[in-house]
Amino acid sequence: MSQSTEPVIQIRNLSKIYRDFWGRKKVEAVKSLSLDVKPGEIFGLLGPNGSGKTTTMKMLLGLLFPSSGDIKVLGKPAHDVEKNERIGYLPEESYLYRFLNAEETLDFYGRLFKMSPQQRRQRRDELIEMVGIKHARKRQLKEYSKGMTRRIGLAQALINDPELVLLDEPTSGLDPLGTRDMKDLISRVREQGKTVVMCSHLLADVQDVCDRIAILYNGELKVLGDVSELLKEQEETELLTSKLSPEALKDVQAVLDKHKVKLHKAGQPSSSLEELFLRTVQTSKERPGRRIVQEDLKSGTGVS
């Protein structure tokens, strides 16, 4: 996934300090963050609550102004309006007009793009179908449940068939089916060669779909890299098979013994990203102000 094309998102030394009305400092939500998102990848932004994920995303969209640092999105500065033509954004909570119904909502957002009425209608129907709220297309959003609002929010983010999709906790509030649909959808978007940046707390999902991740802690970048790389244990090998019977397991053990290989663990696979995440947070608490390297995680007092 390391094509040598220009990054879709380029963040350099980005900081954000929230100030109150009098200009006094309240929180330093993002601290000198630098990262690139490459075209065509699915990038996961992780971190505990309040670590600055949403703040970062809002700065990418020009909703918040950086206190310092530089942002380039699709080669344009964050405040540039034209770039939004090619971006889709699903906010943390769906901030939509509650007096509109699903069709009107999509039509309204469609009108903000360079789309002809037919295109708009077609896209609207497609998306309503896709996010599965066809039965409620004529109902006002104020009657929607949380998950339904989430779905229409997603539809809204995709109305312009964007090249870059920013999803802030896309699966929050969705039922398991919806979650799976969302993952499918993200994969489909990737297949179309689009770039996705997402925040999520569901690490298993992130692990499934993301190519690269960054873990923020307290506004600082702690971990950045390919998921497969990050989770690869150099000294171990993983075999994943269909369920083994105890006899088969014994046979495998015998083979391993023959090669003098030690079996570390046998059982259902666990989501190792979760481990990585927990360890990162733990290490960050113990040693504040340091970027974490692989060795730290391994030798550190990992939580497992």
């Binding site: 020009g62 909703l63 309006v81 971006i87 954004y89 906010p91 909570e93 769906s94 901030y95 957002y109």
Partner: peptide, 14 residues
């Protein structure tokens, strides 16, 4: 306040 404007201005709206 209800941030519906946020979503609007992430579209190409001046």
């Amino acid at each position: 306040k209800i941030r519906s404007l946020h979503t609007v201005i992430t579209k190409p709206v001046r």
